[in-house]
Design a protein around this nucleic acid. Sequence first.
DNA 1: TTGTACGCGTTATCAA
DNA 2: TTGATAACGCGTACAA
Lengths: 356, 356
Amino acid sequence: MQALTLPLSQAISQDTVTQGTPSQPTLQDVADRCGVSTATVSRCLNAPDRVGKDTRDRVLAAIDALGYAPNFGARLMAAGRSNTIGAVIPTMENAIFAQGLQAFQDGLHQAGFTLLVASSGYDPQVEADQVRTLASRGADGLLLIGQGRDKAVYDLLHARGLPALLAWTYRADAPHPAIGFDNVAAMAELADAVLDQGHRRIGYISADTTTNDRAAERLAGVRAAMARRGLSDGDLELCTVPYGIETGAQAFRTLMTQTNRPTAVMCGNDVLAAGAMGAARDLGLAVPKDVSITGFDDIELAQVTSPGLTTVHVPHAQMGAKAADALVARVAQDAPLISVKLPTRLVMRGTLGPAP
Amino acid sequence: MQALTLPLSQAISQDTVTQGTPSQPTLQDVADRCGVSTATVSRCLNAPDRVGKDTRDRVLAAIDALGYAPNFGARLMAAGRSNTIGAVIPTMENAIFAQGLQAFQDGLHQAGFTLLVASSGYDPQVEADQVRTLASRGADGLLLIGQGRDKAVYDLLHARGLPALLAWTYRADAPHPAIGFDNVAAMAELADAVLDQGHRRIGYISADTTTNDRAAERLAGVRAAMARRGLSDGDLELCTVPYGIETGAQAFRTLMTQTNRPTAVMCGNDVLAAGAMGAARDLGLAVPKDVSITGFDDIELAQVTSPGLTTVHVPHAQMGAKAADALVARVAQDAPLISVKLPTRLVMRGTLGPAP
DNA sequence: TTGTACGCGTTATCAA
DNA sequence: TTGATAACGCGTACAA
């Protein structure tokens, strides 16, 4: 809590407070410097082929010399486009979205677009706010996570004519274009693998299913798989907590201190599962000998638990890259947004074993 | 690689391509609707106390009814401020910066500022580009990671009058305001703990020290601690790799397959250490019985390895929050940026033991 | 191929 | 307390 602070005299010498922002070079400055009009300079940047070669060279040299950079606000106002894509993700705290977002950003950057990232903390109200903010900042398109949100948000997008692509989700019946995977089927497949090992008493650690449709879908997947084997809801011990390592650990302790405790604990994602692994270690439970644990997402975390976490691999990078391509095509060439379903696959590492 | 695609007819029906962006309500629209001037409406948003109460109520109602949101470009151009802070971080791929950035974002959001995040991939050239981009987008201030970058970047910031705060680093002799911790001293302290356990043959897995000054400082810390005990550089086996779980694992294998292998492997951060843990497991080496491993940063990852990773705790959240406060104060009230040194502390979990 | 001139939506200055 | 009005910097018809 206590922080050492530099002596003031030394510290402020490092950042002389500006008196009156030094004004940036403008299009006019560049134009003056090489005796052309602002229109020509503008064209050099936006349509170089519509300018004479020698003129262009001269102008570009002047731009370089002056360190000119276009004023974003002016450009946004004049052109109505910002070459910006916004993304609202639930959280930056854990790495669930990191890899996908990085790929998304790379794809956008290659196409000359800038990414604006905002996070909502899984709060629909905050998400709506962030969408509004990004829209008002002139984002040309938006990437949102999941399907479930207030109709008002979709209305806003529609009213603004703002293209939005949903990610980390795919459902055949979904009313909005999305790129992602079938959370229900993927988790059901994993549940099948668990049931194949003879487990009949299943614990499930989930994130809040009311504000997180991926969480809801994954839970539905487990239930579907169990139902297909004639198991009832009573055979599933559900524990709902916010995403987090520590919350996952707590949930695991709760599940395992009950009478008739589960032989396998499935988790809504790898972060929760990692917490469960830690709790198992602390409880002196061997995984998978005493209890099996599974995750979902296959983020880095899943490789470093011991043993490695059995989970569902999600094609993060592919999803991010494809989302970028799709949004760029939509914005730059009016190509329609098309829903895409990506494959997932089970990753059997070491945390799933036969029921004791 | 293969992705299922919806039948086109179904897919495109979901995103009717807009023909001509529906124009947004403007200040003028709001003004017309309640018979006042645009100036009054503007004041209602920016200085509510300078407007009569009933007028204000009427205007705010109209704003709500029309779903008006200010045009960012116009506002930026007219006011010269954007209420935006930019951050350029080396990577979003792993969680090194996640927690600090989340706190930073929360702090900014509370103060009514928006965060723009860009990442550089540890490439100084890309970082310079991102700084330029953020500047041209009207960022009022910038958060950058570490001290080491081209002078041209600092020149650009200065020329623009753009306040910048450096984070994840603190050095008494640094020429720019920074909020962070002493990487050298912190790693030296950890190295002391390792040496106290009798280790004399140390392996060190580092990130590239030429483009990453935090990595360089941490390495320097280890060297300093060893020198103080009369150990030479020859007692330190150095392996430099890019940050990553898998690269950390490879580096560990390299170190441990040499003759006269180290009894302790220190890592430049937790991500590398987590990779090393995985490799140790695969090599059948018990930690810390056969080999000790240490990390740095104390990110989530450090809690889920087994045993838990001995590492250096960094006050991510505190750093992010303080950075946000400082930049907001600088931008909103012209308060000078002051360098702040935050404390770190050793976290002894289970991966450091006595030398065999 | 190049230049002229207007408008984009907001803030801020000044006057009422 | 309110209103009229001049910037702000750029893109783009339209004209030359």
